[in-house]
Structure formats: C-alpha cells, structure tokens
Write a protein that binds this DNA or RNA. Structure first.
Length: 862
RNA sequence: GCGGGCGUGGCGGAAUUGGUAGACGCGCUGGACUCAAAAUCCAGUUCUGGCAACAGAGUGUCGGUUCGACUCCGACCGCCCGCACCA
C-alpha cells in the first residue's frame, strides 16, 4: 500500500493559489508604453443566474490565451464584466415580482463567485455591469454625440404588437404568429422609433473586412453577405391611368424584356392606399402582418400574391402592360419595396409565375444552346449567356446588356444605375424598462430636445409597476413628466430604452478606462485597443460584431476614438451540447434526473418510468439538457473542468458533454500530480548543469526523453498560437507518456527528469493553472508560475537524424524505409528499388516513373 | 426560403494543408497488483478473411482531376448556426 495514493486535493490547492494570485495582484493590468500589450477578451456574459458550460468553455479558452501571452512577455489586459440589461430581468419581474435590479445584481454576485472558482487570470478591478449607472451614463453621452452628428435619428418603423397584452414583442416572443404569454394573434404596428445610421458606413464596414486577416473567413463572408452590396438599376415604371411611378430595384436590368409582372410589398405606400378602397387587399395585408417582423417567418411562408388591379407599363414599350401584384415575399426594408418579376431567370419569380399562370419568356440563353428552342422547365436559368427575345439587346452578353439597358433608361429618364445594400439602419428603440434610457425629451413646442450633458444620467426609476402591461416607464407619471430643457414648458421624457446590443457595442472600449468620468480616456484606448484576441460564440458572427464595428466607427467619427476596427483577431467557439431527455408526458428532464436501469435503458430516477433520449443539442435551460459547472468544479476541481473543455474537441466545433470525458481529465490531473510531485525517482537540483560528458544528441533513453521535451515545447507553442487546444493537450499527454517510461536513475536521467518536469509544468500552466502552481512549488520554485516565462526549445533537439519514408507501388503502401534525413534523391531511389517488397510488386516490369518526395514518400509507378 | 458551416473507427477527434488515414483520449477486451473492490500499471483494439505472416476494403453518397485525394472540383444526402426586438 502506497501512502501517497491519496488523490490530488484540488480543493485546498485551488483555493490557496487563487488567494495568492489575488494578494500578489498577478493579473492587474497597467499601461506600460514600453512593453508590447495584448488585449484578450471573451464576450461578456449575460447574468442569467448561474454560469453554464458554454461560459466555462469560452472563458477557459480566453484564459489559456491570456496566460500563454503573459508568459511570452506581453502586458496582458484580460477583463470581465456583465451584459446586464435585457428582457429576462423584466420577465422575472413580471412572473415573480422581483425587482430587475436586485435580480440582476444578485445573479452577478453568484456568477462572479462561480467564475472566480475557475481560476481565471482576470483583472477584476476593471469589472462593471452595463446596468451600472456609471456605465449607462457614459453611453447616454455617446448617444447624444451620435445625435449631434446625424448618426442617430427617429422615424417610423414596424413592431410586433400583442393586441391583448398591449405590448411590443420580441421576435423570440412570437410563436407561430401568436404572443407567447397571451396567445393572441400578433399584428405589425408602426411606431416612431430611434435608429442608428449604420448605412452611413456600409462601404467601410464591407471593405475593411479585407483587412481583418485574423478573422475566420466564414464570419467575414457572412458579414459581407449581410451588408449585401449589389450593383443594379432602379427602373421607374409608369402606371396605367396614374401620374405616379413605381420605383423598382433590380440586379438584373438585362432581363427587362423577360418581365412578366411587378410585385410590391404589402406595406408599400401604394398597396396601403389601394387597400383603403379594396377590402380584399386590406384583408391580404392584415394576413401578411400577422407573420410579424421576422424575415425568416416572411421568407418561409408560402409565396402568395394578389393582383392589385394596377398595370405597369414597360419602359421600352408603352403598349406592354404588366400586372402589379401585392406579394408577401417582397420586403419593404430592402431596395424600394417593389420588384419586377422575370420568371425565366429567377427561381422565386418562376414559382410565383407558375402559381398565377404568368408568362415565362427566357431572355438569356446559355452559350452553346439554341436560342430558338431554349426554354425553361422547373428551374430558372441564372447563369451567363447571350440575350434573346430582347429587341435591341439581342446577341449581347449579360454584362453588356446590363450596361446598355441602364444607359437607355437613364437617357429616357426612366431609371438609373444604382448600388443597393441589404444592410439597414439599426433600430435601437425598445419599449421596455430594463435598458439604458434614451436621453431626450419630447416638448410640445420644441420637439425632440436632448437632455443636457450636465443633467445626465437619465436614471432608471426604481419604483415601477410590472402588473400593468406595456412599458413601465410609460406608466410612471412623475418620471415621465419633466420640464423642457430648452423652454421650460411641459414635456415628456423619451420612454424607449436602448437595444442591449448598444451596451455590448463599446464595452471593450470601456474596459481600457472603466472608472473614468468620460466614455473613453484617449491614452488608455490608444495603448490597449484594438482587442488583439476576441473570443465568443459563432451565434454572434453577424449582429453583435457588426454593431460593434459600426459603433467603433461612430465613436471615431464623434472624436472619441482613433480606430477603425475594434477586434484585430477573432475566434468563434462552438457550443456545448448534451443529450436531451423527455418523460412519457413529453416533459424535459435534467440529466441528473435520468439513470440507466439494469436493462441498460434510460429511466426517470425517481419514478423508474421510461425516458426518451433525444439527440445531442446545444445546452439550454428550456430543454434542461444542462450540466451545472459548479457541481463539476465541486467534484473534480476547476483544472479538471478546464482540461476537459480543452481536450478532444477542436474549439470551433460543438462539444458534446460526457461524464466519461470528465473522468478521463480527472485521471490525467492526478497522474501529473503523482508523476511530478510524488516522484520516487532521482531528480537533479534546480538549475543544475547537465552531467559531465552528457551528449544531448546522442543515443540513450534520457536523450530520447530530452528530445521529446523539446519537441513538445515546439508543438504545444505552435498549437496554442493557432487555437489548437485539443492538439496541445494531446502533445502534453504524449510528453507525459514519454517521461513516464524514463525509469533510469543515473545522473543523466535525473537531469533530464528535472528538465522534463519543469517543462511539463510550464506547458500545462495556461490550461491547468492551479495544478501548474502546485507542481511549480513542488519543484522548488518560490515565485508563481503565473509570472514565469514560457520555455523555449533547442532547435538542435527537435529534428531527428533519420526519417521514415513511405514506400508505395502504384499509389498503394507496400512498406516503409528508415533513411537519414535529407538523403540524396538518387540514394533514396535505389534504396527503395532494391527493397524485396518493391521487387515483388514490380514483378520484373520496368518502373514507368518513380516519384520521390523528400523525407516523406516514394511512389513507384509501373 | 436566403446566407454561412460541418460530416473520418463503438465514441470525441489527429493527419506537417495533395504524400504511411486513425496521433491523443474515452470505451471495450485480456493480464498484473489485491482476500476482494476501487485506484494504478502493462498489452491489444478501423472493418472483412486468416492461428499468423499477410491480403482486400475504408474518411456521408455518387462522379471527376492526379503518380498519389480525408484534403482539390461537380452533383446529391444529413446535421448545425444566423436571418436585424433572445443574448
């Protein structure tokens, strides 16, 4: 019985090192202009109540980067805060009568404690919540700056309206066209709302994507498509019997002679006007409005249209009349809210034309096809070719036809070439309580009046009621009624608050000078920004990142920043998933409620009733497929949880939670502890020189281990640099295996063991920092590993003298060959050809070709 | 519907970016230690055939390029993320 078989006591060790890091202020960041800085940031959490595994994964990755870069000599900024405004606090207030502020700050206290238990190397002195008065105070200043510069404005736009609860609903709160609480059919309503002029930076947001060389290509692509710059033309159709014109945007002006109808949005002013005297149309609009404001809902609904009775006249043929439909798939927000339909060359138009029996005339024929017989079946032809059935365009290629049509339209005053963007201005108004108040006042005489800076912040009142539907700020008479700052007359506060995306669009700036009485301190921002490495979920690939990029530009335009792009490097991590469980009634069950019975079937632990096991899905409260990090940390410790988050699954892919995987990580933590801290084999003293006559490049077990050590330094460093955490863990495990087999006790082995243990400890430091410190101390160090430098590899020890060459005959592996590195091609060739296996498969034939790839492979082709 | 991505053993994944497919881990099988168990250690583990040496097949499916394809190209299937008021 070995007395040291007791397991690694993580509870004491983790608490002890967390206390020491704090007392030594290891992670407090200060500006040191002489040192290179590195700003690591993970997307800050919403304080929902408790941290979840997605947080553990996100913050572990960021912490590895932070500790790694610190060890490599960078002055690292690694802050944490809370994205604390938002709907859930209000839902808690409505459902359980809890004050949103108390609910939020209570959650923050819990989650801070949980995050601290993970041993993250954060500078907690910079912490703030976006619902702190001191934060939203600065945000209100920024709003006023945008307003002064024309980047904030007010106009009408649509919301989802619940006619029973008299409340505006988020898209998420609309389920199958009904309000989630009331169950009432929702409607679209127009309200006056605040917008940020994101479109002022359309081109900059698009073009600067090219400079973001440390962003994932797919995120840049998604942003590019979201901005959706398209060149085309607007065409002004005359309307039969009317004086006004229908303005249509198209990317395919070349197909104008293939037009068979026009379609306008249900919310187009023309449709709205016609509906007043056309009940059929009014009914259609009402039905479309029930789809809500979500583009997804609109686009997935069955394509439907209704003939408005209007007739559009073809710009090149006044006798050619096109029916004008109101169609549910035409978005008022994109282009001009009106299109012309060319069914032969657009799939959606084709389906619409087939449904309503409209003509389908091909006007572009692919090269090599016969224009006389080319026709369209079930699929529109969207490719290149030559124009047919198109009068003056016949025979032209598509690009030439586009240019020709556009010129003719311009000459006739019937249209013009234009550039259109899919990107819309950002609607920031929310008819809700728990958000940053928009600091303006509406005066009967003066109109919209900004609240003067010295009267800021506009503070959220605490005495609000959630038992009446609607916006509590709107019901708060004493808060709402104020004298006009300009004329002193009676006025009303703006009761809309800001979208929480505004809060998260500049928090990374605030971290540079979190306590300043101004949004930004120039010198701090200049030193720390941009964020060198931003890490967060792929679900934020478009909106949050785009808004933050916009806001950075807006802050630059208003003089607060000298910066274009906020995030120099971006990494998008995958989600944490788990199997889902439902009981017989279909109710979701927590994994802790489910066990296996003797027959190996999943059953409800309490009742023994059968449980349906669903496939692994992203952990979510609603499906209850969650594992509580706190339980894991209490059982195995933070290092085990961190290790599991980093092992096996590449960080950008979804990770499947498994209990067995955690056990494996736990075993490895213990194995390292036993091997290094409790070794019974001799180990040289710290900083002892190599034993006399020791040749590190020579043969021997110790030498082999030493080479493994240096290779591991190289490999782990490279892996950590490119977010290969799972590979880095595998390399560390390999090194552990290599060190474990070194059982010799001679001075050379003792010296190598010291090198190996020190290196191993340093390499695991960023991933398992508490274990790292404990081992570092056991190895005799008095200062912390957190402040120690990263090890460097000896280049002479990382390459082997010989290489294994794969030998193929006709592309099939027939053997391998051990040869000196960088051997002459001729020598390699003859060595391979003289192999018995090769001779056997060549079978007397003369090789037609011998492909030799240096240090890698030889392929004999016969 | 539109945009973006992913798919490799029983499982998570690796593969120097066109050069020995399956590193590392989980699981499983056998063994050592133990009165026994746990823990630990050792060995094996893609599939098919074979005692074995070995042979054949194999990276979602079908086809193509190449001396050589998990990697490149085309079509298809399945799953995931986003779609502007969830954060």
């Amino acid at each position: 019985m070995h007395f040291h078989m007791s397991r690694y006591s993580f509870k004491d060790i983790e608490a002890r090192w967390q206390a020491r890091w704090e007392s030594e202020q290891c992670f407090a960041a200060t500006e040191e202009p002489s040192r290179p800085k590195y700003y690591v940031l993970e997307m800050f959490p919403y304080p929902s109540g408790r941290i979840h595994m997605g947080h553990v994964r996100n913050y572990t990755m960021g912490d590895v980067v932070a500790r790694f870069m610190r060890a490599r000599g960078y002055n690292v900024l690694h802050p944490m805060g809370w994205d604390a405004f938002g709907l859930p606090a209000e839902n808690a207030a409505i459902e359980r009568g809890i004050d949103p502020s108390e609910w939020t700050y209570g959650n923050i206290d819990t989650m801070r404690r949980q995050l601290k238990a993970l041993g993250l190397s954060l500078d907690w002195s910079r912490e703030f919540a976006t619902c702190d008065e001191s934060y939203y105070h600065q945000q209100q200043k920024l709003f006023l700056a945008l307003l002064r510069n024309g980047l904030a404005y007010r106009r009408e736009s649509w919301v989802n309206w619940d006619p029973v609860d008299h409340t505006v609903l988020a898209n998420e709160q609309v389920v199958d066209g009904r309000g989630w609480r009331s169950g009432a059919l929702i409607e679209r309503r127009k309200l006056n709302q605040w917008f940020f002029r994101t479109t002022a930076f359309s081109d900059s947001l698009l073009e600067a994507l090219q400079t973001l060389d440390r962003w994932p290509e797919r995120v840049k692509l998604m942003q590019q498509n979201w901005i959706g710059r398209s060149e085309g033309a607007c065409v002004l159709f005359r309307l039969k019997g009317r004086d006004d014109r229908l303005e249509v945007f198209t990317t395919r002006p070349d197909t104008l002679f293939g037009a068979s109808f026009c379609a306008i949005s249900p919310n187009h002013p023309i449709t709205q006007a016609l509906a007043e005297s056309d009940p059929r149309l009014a009914d259609f609009i009402a039905r479309c409005n029930r789809l809500g404001t979500s583009e997804e809902a609109i686009e997935t609904a069955e394509k439907e249209g209704i003939d408005t009775g209007l007739r559009a006249l073809h710009p090149f043929d006044p006798d050619w009349e096109l029916p004008v439909y109101a169609a549910n798939f035409v978005l008022m927000e994109y282009g001009t809210g009106a299109i012309f339909g060319c069914p032969a060359h657009d799939q959606r138009d084709l389906e619409f034309a087939r449904k309503y029996g409209l003509p389908v005339v091909p006007v572009v024929a692919p090269d090599g096809s016969d224009p006389a017989t080319f026709s369209i079946g079930d699929e529109a032809y969207t490719g290149d070719g030559r124009l047919i059935h198109s009068r003056f365009l016949d025979g032209l290629a598509v690009p030439e036809a586009k240019a020709t049509v556009t010129q003719r339209l311009e000459a006739a005053g019937d249209g013009a070439g234009t550039v259109s963007y899919r990107l819309r201005d950002w609607g920031i108004s929310r008819q809700r309580y728990w958000g940053c108040p928009i600091p303006v006042v509406h005066c009967e005489r003066c109109g919209v009046v900004p609240v003067p800076e010295d009267a800021l912040p506009v503070v959220l009142p605490r005495d609000v009621r959630f038992d009446v539907p609607g916006n509590p700020l709107d019901h708060h008479e004493t808060w709402k009624h104020v004298p006009c700052p300009a004329c002193g007359g009676p006025a009303l506060r703006e009761t809309d608050t800001m979208d929480t995306f505004v809060d998260s669009s500049w928090y990374f700036v605030r971290f540079c000078s979190p306590h300043a009485d101004a949004p930004v301190v120039g010198s701090a921002a200049a030193y720390w920004l941009p964020v060198d490495q931003y890490i967060g979920g792929i679900e934020h690939a478009i909106l949050h990142l785009l808004y933050a990029r916009f806001f950075t530009r807006a802050m630059a335009a208003t003089g607060y920043l000298d910066l274009e792009e906020p995030f120099a490097g971006l990494f998008t991590q995958g989600m944490v998933c788990h199997e889902t469980y439902r009981d017989e009634a279909g109710k979701w069950l927590f994994p802790t409620e489910v066990t296996m019975n003797d027959a190996g079937q999943a059953v409800h632990a309490a009742s023994g009733r059968p449980v349906t096991v669903g496939r692994s899905e992203s952990m979510s409260k609603s499906k209850r497929n969650v594992v509580d990090p706190e339980t894991i940390i209490a059982t195995y410790g933070a290092d085990t949880a961190r290790l599991f988050m980093l092992s096996d699954t590449p960080p950008d892919r979804d990770l499947d939670w498994s209990d067995a995987g955690v056990e494996g990580a736990w075993r490895f933590v213990n194995r390292l502890w036993r091997m290094v801290a409790e070794t019974e084999l001799p180990m040289a003293a710290r900083d002892a020189p190599a034993p006399e006559g020791f040749d590190p490049s020579g043969p021997g077990a110790a030498q082999e281990t030493l080479r493994a050590v240096h290779k591991a330094i190289n490999d782990v460093t490279a892996d950590l640099e490119r977010f290969g955490f799972n590979r880095a863990v595998a390399r560390v495990r390999e090194l552990t295996n290599a060190v474990a087999v070194l059982s010799e006790a001679d001075p050379a082995a003792a010296w190598v063991r010291r090198q190996a243990f020190e290196t191993l400890t340093q390499l695991i430091g960023p991933m398992m920092p508490h274990l790292g410190e404990a081992l570092w101390e056991a190895l005799g160090h008095e200062t912390t590993l957190a402040t120690a430098a990263w090890p460097t590899a000896d280049p002479a020890l990382v390459v082997d003298d010989t290489v294994t060459i794969a030998v193929q005959v006709n592309g099939k592996l027939r053997g391998t060959l051990e040869l000196p590195r960088d051997a002459e091609e001729g020598d390699v060739r003859s060595a391979v050809l003289s192999l018995p296996v090769v001779a056997e498969f060549v079978a007397g034939r003369t090789p037609r070709r011998v492909v030799v790839v240096r240090n890698r492979i030889v392929n004999v082709v016969v």
